[in-house]
Nucleic acid binder design. Sequence first.
DNA 1: CCCTAGCGGTGCT
DNA 2: AGCACCGCTAGGG
Length: 184
Amino acid sequence: MRTRSSIETRAWEIVIPAPGGEFVAHYSTRGLCGLEFPARAPQHRRRVSTAHVPARVRRWHAATARALEQALAGRPPKTLPPLDLSAGTGFQRRVWSALRRIGWGRTRSYGQVARAIGRPKAARAVGTACGANPIPVFVPCHRVLAADNRLGGFSGGLDWKRALLRREGIMRPGRGKSQRRRHP
DNA sequence: CCCTAGCGGTGCT
DNA sequence: AGCACCGCTAGGG
């Protein structure tokens, strides 16, 4: 397995307005290749190349926007745009494809994902690969929790992880899984 | 609750 | 090649 796949450039980035702020979707020639959560701090958004966007990419984007809207409204998206996950290492892509097999409203532990991809002792590396997931929400790294059923981490911020889990009915609105609290 | 050792992938020297 | 990260985990106090 190769260590690094060919790099597909992010040719287009398009904003998606949402209640919590603006998501940014990135597209390559192969499909959706990145999704950013709204920036925490108000931020002068960089140049967005919406000009000359091919019709195909606009269709993908329509699918992305609709799917994101559904997911944030607490209903499983019916269809997704094509996902371009080619920018990952072999290990990362294995992890990401395992994540896509975790159904809406279900969870796994990092160790379970590690076993599912045939690397039973690589739980920690699975966490790192989750953190490198370029398409959160649709590649549901938020459904992976620590083995003791705590929340684990989330590169988009634990508030988002909690919010997504709640939308799927996994966490009770008020109380929830306790948070990892080591050296703050 | 705390701490520790062991773990594997990644990225930087 | 070496090494310091880490969204981890099992085991022990």
